[in-house]
């Protein structure tokens, strides 16, 4: 973004939260924020559940059964997707922040993010979800 270019101020409220000038940059930012908040929420749950390993092992094992159930595995896949997108797009941000010249290629970096996301993410999702139809009822 050239110095001195005047951009409209971000809109306030719900519209301001989701709408911003369009394009890959906006989508990358919106997904990054949503996935980041989702992973943060899981981290809170995860610290508490691991605390139970010491504090109440029986309760932890019960919770583990929920995690390993079919709906739990769908949530696990969504968590993996949020984490993986956030990690890949985060590296795109770090690359542009450390080498600002590469910001000119943000669209190409964005495509690399999605190609990697599906190339590695789909086999990963298959591994996580497989026990749903393989485990005996």
């Amino acid at each position: 973004m050239a110095r001195g270019t005047t951009l409209p101020a971000p809109r306030r409220g719900i519209r301001g939260a989701i709408a911003y000038r369009g394009g890959e940059g906006m989508l990358a930012w919106a997904f990054h924020r949503i996935s980041g908040i989702a992973v943060w929420a899981f981290v809170i749950l995860h610290v508490i559940d691991i605390y139970l390993v010491g504090g109440n092992p029986a309760a932890y094992n019960e919770l583990l059964q929920i995690y390993a159930s079919p709906p739990g595995r769908v949530m696990e896949t969504l968590l993996g997707a949020a984490l993986f997108y956030h990690a890949l797009n985060g590296m795109r941000i770090v690359v542009m922040d450390l080498w600002p010249a590469l910001t000119a290629y943000h669209r190409q970096l964005w495509r690399i993010v999605w190609i990697t996301f599906f190339a590695l993410g789909l086999p990963g999702a298959y591994i996580i979800l497989k026990p749903i139809w393989e485990l005996p009822k």
Binding site: V53, P57, A68, G80, F84, I127, P131
Partner: peptide, 24 residues
């Protein structure tokens, strides 16, 4: 760290086998 952790706890091992006893 986080991607290695996720791979280990979800791809190499299955959540179902990582009980409290397994962790300790």
């Amino acid at each position: 760290l986080a991607l290695a952790h996720f791979s280990m706890t979800h791809f190499i091992f299955d959540p179902a086998e990582q009980t409290a006893e397994w962790i300790t």
